[in-house]
């Protein structure tokens, strides 16, 4: 039976990565969004050394061209700390972006590194959500997401933290982190998925803390949304994950 419910993709990228066969033609996004019922896609651009260029790409190629179908997600690079606060102000005040995506793997520094502190302070002042990966290749042995986010949520209590690629649910560390700490959400996209992963996270009481994401244009919307749609959970919980939680989180 076909049902109607808001569907928001929390995790997509703009900017081509064509040497890996991932072009970012917005028409492809729109086509797949229409096929899968996705109303709105949150687009970030994290693949450039120049955040100004990247945020403009998101705005010009997606947000302003297709009103209502895309939400802008800001990006800044701590390799140029002198530009970060200006660019954050511009992205949120002028471009009306809704949250911030950081990509510490790309910088070669984990999200605890000193360079992020001014960014976190700024986001904490404004109450801006931040999405980034939970673990990194550069992590010291014994690092856990729970320890990492314990500090983050204590130091920056106004930030809503979204752990990208974590809603798989078989990642006990991320599930435990979201269960034990306030202000932690889990996002679902990824190239793989564990069996009963989404159900596992829901069974932990996290149905209100899971956000559907696609990872477009790397992954296909259909593969990613199917993880939620075909999960062994209630339809009400599916609706929350598909969009209702994102609406609440972003005050849409």
């Amino acid at each position: 039976m076909i049902e109607t419910t808001p569907i928001i993709d929390f995790h997509a990228h703009g900017g081509g990565w064509t040497n890996r066969a991932f072009p970012d033609d917005p028409n492809t996004y729109i086509k797949q969004m229409d096929i899968t019922g996705v109303d709105t896609t949150c687009v970030n651009c994290i693949w450039f050394g120049d955040a100004n260029w990247a945020n403009n790409l998101v705005f010009n190629r997606f947000v302003s061209k297709y009103p209502g179908r895309f939400i802008g997600v800001a990006f800044v690079t701590p390799h140029y700390p002198e530009e970060c606060i200006y660019e954050l102000d511009r992205a949120f005040n002028e471009l009306n972006f809704k949250f911030l995506k950081l990509y510490p793997d790309y910088y070669g520094q984990s999200s605890d590194a000193e360079g992020y502190q001014p960014i976190y302070e700024w986001a904490n002042d404004k109450g801006i959500p931040i999405m980034c990966h939970g673990r990194y290749g550069t992590d010291a042995p014994g690092t856990t997401q729970l320890k990492r986010y314990e500090k983050f949520t204590k130091d920056f209590p106004n930030i809503k933290w979204v752990i990208a690629h974590a809603g798989g649910g078989t990642d006990i560390d991320s599930v435990q982190t979201a269960k034990e700490l306030p202000n932690i959400w889990l996002e679902t996209c990824g190239s793989g998925i564990g069996l009963r992963a989404v159900k596992h996270a829901v069974d932990y009481g996290l149905a209100d803390k899971i956000l559907f994401g696609s990872d477009m244009p790397i992954m296909d919307y259909r593969n990613q949304i199917s993880k939620v749609i075909t999960a062994d959970i209630s339809n009400n919980d599916k609706k929350k994950i598909l969009g209702l939680n994102a609406i609440k989180l972003l005050n849409l």
Partner: peptide, 16 residues
């Protein structure tokens, strides 16, 4: 399966 669920790729195929 059982590392991954059976249904996501079936869903994808049905929406192509």
């Amino acid at each position: 399966f059982p590392d991954s669920p059976m249904s996501p790729q079936i869903y994808n195929l049905h929406h192509n």
